[in-house]
Design a protein around this nucleic acid. Sequence first.
DNA 1: TCTGGGGTCCTAGGACCC
DNA 2: TCTGGGGTCCTAGGACCC
Length: 457
Amino acid sequence: MAWQHGAERRLAPLTPTRLESSFRLRKDLPPRKLLHIDMDAFFAEVEIRDNPSLRGRPVAVGGGGGYRGVVTSANYLARQYGLKAGMPSGQARKLCPQTVFLPVNGRKYVFVSAQIMSALEQFSPEVRPLSVDEASLDITGCERLFGGALELGLKLKEMVRHRFDLPCTVGIAPNRLTAKMAANLGKPDGLLIFSTTQEAAAAFAPLPVEEMVGIGAATGKALNRIGITTLGQLAGTADFVLKSHFGILGPYLRQMAAGEWAGRMRQDDERGPVEKSIGHQRTFEVNLTDTNELRARLVGLAEMVARRVRKGGWKGQVLTLTVRYGDFHTFTHQSHLPAPTADEEALIDNSWKLLEECLDSGREVRLLGLSLSGLSAKSSRGGQLDLFGGNRLVRREALENALDALRERFGEKVIARAQGGRYARARRYVPCQDMVPLRGGAGKEAFVQALGISKIC
DNA sequence: TCTGGGGTCCTAGGACCC
DNA sequence: TCTGGGGTCCTAGGACCC
């Protein structure tokens, strides 16, 4: 299932450093019970729940647009025809023409997700959302209140089904990675418990190595090349052999396959900033070569990034531009800004510079992306900002806040940067033709003045 | 059937300093 | 005359996940 809504909400990756500290920690800890809940075909099931006429039909969310789309989520009926997340929409249509394609309604899924996450707290004080449709619960000790792990798992599934009318799969195991694997293997609408790592290893053994969370296509291929195709083979391979091919990561691959990885929930005090980078990327409907057109698209990305950065109360110092050419070759180019910023103009100017430096002009561009990292909290400035007084920077910040508020209230298209001449560096804003009417209100004149526009319709 | 968009983390190599 | 080696920072690329 694709999609997620927060950098913090993901499974900690399997890095040697983390793994090592996990193992160190494990020696001092009593055996634990971790529960992993994974919503089945979450987006598709939410849509079906809200529109019962879709029941019994193959449903896909995403991939409905006419261009270059992929399926984001498909219900299990559609999956019987071979549809799955990440599949190009053209292929999905061909495999199953009767599929109902629905647009992605991100806000709705985030809303439902938040409700589910909070409802999970009745089963454990330690609920860790990993993505919009997954969470990990430390139920060590809690299971006794429910009469055992099995009973707790069943009650949890029943709660989700009754309160939210949605199916989910639950995995329970001695560690987090194995619990997640249990949920993967139990899908759909299942409950799978591994009481010991040995039990888990036995279940993993016949599976192809790529089924393991953390082993993707590249590592899978590398393992296949040395004759390891199943997780059972991987678990039985000597560490020195794996070490010689995969370096320090090698032994950890074996431990994962043996169900021995003791990934732990991070403690609250080691939680870093919620987000490490904020970015957007866009694949164009058709490949672009015109530099002015590319610049215009870049401005759009910079505005979106700047707004999210400001909304989160951040500033960032490292700007990364991504260019994907028509042949799918993808390049990134970074620049370290002189100071952390959330300023739209600064992002636009610097991203243009980056593009000028690295663009292979004449080559067809398929995608542009822009991301800001090196985030730090914006220093708080007490009191309201003065829209009309203050220095230029403060005024600009006030202007950008006003624009954010406008867009938040009336939508993305309510106002756009003027494209004076041929995408000259416009500093003025004009209302879009399809602008949502503003009805009076005290702030109207202030907006008109602050935005430097002639009128608001 | 050509391949989305949001992220995190790791690593290799070069620059630079001592 | 040009050579060691360790440490750190920065950048680009890649693997992986949902």
